[in-house]
Design a protein around this nucleic acid. Structure first.
Lengths: 126, 126
DNA sequence: TTAATAGTTCCATAATTCCGAACTAATGAA
DNA sequence: TTCATTAGTTCGGAATTATGGAACTATTAA
C-alpha cells in the first residue's frame, strides 16, 4: 500500500523520512534574518557552523543553560531548515544537521559569515 | 507645572519630544535581526541607508506598493529605533530619521552592510 | 484661540509561538 | 516476527506578539 501523498512524492512537503529543504533560489534574506532573530536558533546555527561534524537535533536539548522541550526544539529546526539555513538528513533513527554554507555563501555573499562573527563577538563579551 | 515623569526624565522611556534610543552597547545582534526580519522594516532601513538626507516617518506611508496605517508604521519605527538601528529627531512637527551607521559599524563590523547589500541584490532580482 | 499636520497610544482582533501529550519511524533485542 | 527504545513530528490549547482603527498629544502656523 502506498503511504506517501502526491505532495510528498513531488517534494512540496516533507515525509518523515526526508524533511523538506527549499531550493537555494527560494531562500530569502528576510527568512534568514527571521530564523536568526531567535537566540536559540542563532546559537544552533553558530554551533553547527563551527562544529567539526554534523550533529543531531537532541544535541541541543540543553542550550544556553536551559532545557528545551523537544517539540519546541523540533520547531526551531524546522524554521532553520525552511529558511534554507540547514540541511537535515536521516541517519537511522536520528537526523543529522549541517549548514548549507557553500550554497548560502554563493547566493548571499559575506552576509551570513558577518552575522555569525558579530554574534560570536557579542557572546564572547557576555 | 512639571509634565514629564521621572522615568522619562532619566531617559528610561521616551517623551513625545524625543523618542528613546538605546545606547550602542545595549544593542544586540538578535534585536537587529528581528527588526530586519520584517519586509517593511528592512525596506525602510535600506532606504534610509542609501538616502541623500534624513526622512520623516510619513515618507514611508506607501511602501512596497501598499498603503500602511500610520499606527502600524509608528510601531515599525519604534522597533527599528529600539533595536538601535535608527535615530529619530524631532524637527518641528515631524520626526526625521537616519541610520546610526557609524556606531553600528564600529560595534558590529561589516554585518549590517552585508545584510543590506544582500537584500538590495535580492530586490534587484524581483 | 483655532486648525492642521505628524506621530503615538489604546484596545480589540488576528496571527505566531510555546510546550505538553499523543503520535510515527527506525532500530535492535528477544 | 513482536516488543521496547530512541529520535523526532504533529496536534491543540495557552501565552505572546503584531495589526490597524479610533482617540489622543505635540508642534506649528494662521
Amino acid at each position: 500500500m502506498e503511504l506517501l501523498s502526491d505532495a510528498v512524492k513531488c517534494g512540496m512537503i516533507s515525509s518523515m523520512r526526508t524533511p523538506y529543504h527549499p531550493p537555494i533560489e527560494d531562500v530569502t534574506v528576510e527568512g534568514i534574518l527571521h530564523a536568526f532573530s531567535d537566540p536559540v536558533r542563532i546559537e544552533i546555527y553558530a554551533d553547527l557552523a563551527t562544529a567539526e561534524c554534523a550533529k543531531n537535533c537532541s544535541t541541543f536539548l540543553t542550550i544556553q543553560k536551559r532545557l528545551l522541550p523537544k517539540s519546541t526544539l523540533s520547531q526551531h529546526f524546522r524554521i532553520l531548515r525552511e529558511a534554507g539555513l540547514i540541511r537535515s538528513e536521516r541517519k537511522g533513527v536520528e537526523l543529522i544537521n549541517s549548514t548549507r554554507c557553500a550554497e548560502l555563501k554563493e547566493r548571499f555573499g559575506p552576509m551570513i559569515l558577518a552575522i555569525i562573527e558579530a554574534y560570536a563577538q557579542q557572546q564572547k563579551a557576555v
